[in-house]
């Protein structure tokens, strides 16, 4: 009986803090792991080049308009969905998952929309839906007129908590 118990004690108490390290020291593991890391590195290098190429081809700088969305809220607004219109045309509708909202709450910024627009004046209208103070359905809207020039245009929509009014608000920042 004692033998059984001793084995079980080792099993239960023996926290293998170094089992990963042991695995890492295994030469076959190490060699394969190193090859996997190199492959990842090279695919990532290629991928970033293709990412740039795709942007150059699909959204050239002289027509590119990108709209970002960020959150600095928590108390007064829980985001549910967003609708974006440019020049009175709906360009995107987006429904958020819990995980995506967590990403936004941690400071992530979502590239909500990228499109092509001619140089000149345009109007952007955005609506967000979600739960406002006391869990009530809440809808926020904002609009901005912007002029598209030869450089790409980056617009960030920020949803902020306004402590004084205890309400959320929309803020728009045009990066360039």
């Amino acid at each position: 009986m004692k033998k059984f118990i001793t084995a079980a004690v080792v099993l239960v108490l023996g926290i293998s803090l170094y089992s990963f390290a042991q695995a890492a020291k295994n030469s076959e593991f190490k060699s394969l792991d190193s090859r996997v890391q190199n492959l990842k590195h090279e695919v990532l290098q290629l991928n970033q080049e293709l990412f740039t190429l795709e942007e150059e081809l699909l959204f050239p700088a002289n027509t590119q308009v990108a709209v970002f969305l960020s959150l600095d809220v928590g108390k007064f607004f829980k985001l549910d969905s967003v609708q974006l219109k440019i020049d009175k045309k709906v360009v995107t509708n987006y429904l958020y998952t819990k995980r995506e909202i967590e990403s936004l709450e941690k400071g992530g910024v979502q590239r909500l929309y990228v499109g092509n627009f001619r140089s000149g004046k345009h109007e952007l209208v955005a609506f967000v839906r979600g739960k406002g103070p006391k869990g009530r359905d809440y809808r926020l809207g904002t609009n901005i007129n912007f002029t598209k020039k030869a450089d790409p245009k980056y617009i960030e929509l920020r949803i902020l908590d306004v402590q004084g009014k205890k309400q959320p608000k929309f803020d728009v920042k045009v990066w360039q």
Partner: peptide, 14 residues
């Protein structure tokens, strides 16, 4: 987050 492209990467990371 002071820059949307940094935030964009952060969004995917998170």
């Amino acid at each position: 987050t002071k820059d949307p492209f940094y935030g964009d990467a952060l969004y995917y990371y998170s």
